[in-house]
Amino acid sequence: MKYIYALTLLLISSAAVASEAVVQERLGQYRTQGAGDFDAARGQTLWQQEHMQVKLGKQVNCASCHSANLQQAGKHMRTGKRIEPMAPSVNPDRLNDAEKIEKWFTRNCKWTWGRECTAQEKGDILTFLQSK
């Protein structure tokens, strides 16, 4: 019994650590690609910046699906499907898989901004998300 308890604790705490370690590893990677220091405030501005989505004919930003309050669930603006909160503090499943992070950066930057995000922008956004 005690053993299960300890194991659960270990799993929970390692999940929280997982996002920190993965984000740090990503930031290191972005620096090698030419990025400088990272800034959560700049990340927030990017998160809210509106762009014209040509196929949709509407202004969109990252919060269009993820919601502006990162501790709350979002909603896919086209299908209506629930998207779990982006803040690692309330959602331990967030930002703990580098491959998943990069997959969604590629898709969502292209769709929302019409281009890929730079290493600097990705680092600023991750720093912003991780701070929530």
Binding site: K103, R107, W111
Partner: peptide, 8 residues
Amino acid sequence: FGENAELN
């Protein structure tokens, strides 16, 4: 369907 769903 107007979305980017690319995969490796």
